[in-house]
């Protein structure tokens, strides 16, 4: 690239930057640079990877016990039984399929489709605590357009263990999630195809405390939650020496839910979560978030097929996020024995 072209590129970038700042009033999306080296391609792949990895599934699973706590309030009938002293009782298995569509908002940003199969079991344990384990298997495929487009495939799993307790009108709990994923990111131009193998180990801790108010068929709840994530990512490519880095972030989530029992068999929930990144390590390779606060919201319909089996359909959209847009659809089956 000669000096004139470089100058034009810089001026173009500045114009784009000013225009986007004026129209959106937000930090500018990063313009995709022209691919000149393997290092650049590698960085872009990594950036793409960081935008949609199984860490998101790990985070989402880490917050699932909040739903279980709420369900045990609104959907479990009160009874007059003391604690039986058994370690595990009242098992409630569930199975869920989730489809997620994530699109980075930057120009030629990565579009990712994620398929997740989640299964788990929730039990009562000593002193009326609730405990359980959740396992997810994930396959993700990402794609980005443009001259430096990348695509990547990723397979992984997460395992979550949690413990929670309901005390009258409030509840608390914590979960610990471990996730592993392995993926390959590739640059698109066939002539200059760089591959990077990416392995990640993720650890998420999610303590929460919340309150619920139930009045007849209505219930509302709010749950302040802190989600801490530590992720160790290792990159291996043919061009660059293998590297790894450990990055962590902490997000405050105010998870709110309003529920209404439409009939004997149908529940409607509306989830409205506010997410705020409190702290975030700077990655050596990937861009961090420019937007530190956003909303996730959506309805969930639960239908009781029988007294012991229920199906649900949930939809969640991420809105007011300048970095990405995200849509999730979950279909699941719950049992209570």
């Amino acid at each position: 690239m000669n000096g004139k072209v470089r100058m034009l590129f810089v001026v173009g970038c500045l114009v784009c930057l000013m225009a986007s700042s004026v129209t959106l009033g937000t930090p500018p999306p990063v313009a995709a640079p022209v691919d000149t080296s393997g290092e650049l391609a590698n960085r872009q792949q990594v950036a793409a990877y960081q935008g949609a990895s199984n860490a998101n599934v790990a985070k989402s699973n880490a917050q699932r016990p909040i739903t279980f706590s709420l369900d045990s309030y609104r959907a479990t009938a009160n009874h007059a039984a003391g604690n039986d002293g058994s370690w595990l009782s009242d098992p409630k298995p569930f199975l869920e399929y989730g489809y997620g569509h994530n699109r980075a908002k930057e120009r030629n940003g990565l579009t990712t489709d994620t398929h997740t199969v989640t299964g788990g079991v929730i039990c009562k344990t000593f002193a009326d605590f609730q405990t359980g384990a959740i396992f997810s298997f994930i396959h993700a495929h990402g794609d980005s357009a443009g001259r430096n487009g990348v695509d990547y495939d990723e397979d992984g799993f997460t395992a979550t263990f949690f413990i929670s307790k309901n005390i009258q009108w409030f509840y608390f709990g914590t979960s610990l999630t471990y996730g592993y994923s392995g993926g390959i990111a590739r640059t698109k131009p066939a002539a200059n195809r760089f591959r990077t193998k990416i392995d990640s180990n993720t650890l998420v801790v999610c303590p929460y405390i919340g309150a619920i108010y139930v009045n007849g068929p209505f219930s509302v709840s709010t749950t302040p939650t802190y989600v801490y994530r530590y992720q160790d990512v290792a990159y291996r490519s043919g061009i660059n020496p293998s590297t790894s880095e450990g990055i962590s972030d902490g997000t405050f989530v105010l998870a709110n839910r309003a529920s209404y029992a439409v009939s004997e068999k149908l529940w409607v929930d509306f989830n409205f979560d506010y997410n705020q990144i409190i702290h975030e390590d700077e990655s050596k390779y990937a861009q961090g978030s420019t937007d530190r606060g956003w909303l996730t919201l959506g309805p969930k319909f639960t239908y009781y097929i029988t007294e012991t089996a229920q199906i649900y359909l949930g939809y969640t959209a991420t809105v007011a996020n300048d970095d990405f847009e995200d849509h999730q659809i979950n279909v699941g089956l719950d049992f209570r024995f």
């Binding site: 009874h79 007059a80 004997e264």
Partner: peptide, 21 residues
């Protein structure tokens, strides 16, 4: 007796249609 030795007995709610109207 409200229940047998191995049974639980539950609370019902006339103000919420959920589960039983």
């Amino acid at each position: 007796f409200a229940s047998l030795e191995g049974e639980r007995t539950y609370e019902l709610n006339f103000r919420s249609p959920f589960r039983l109207d």
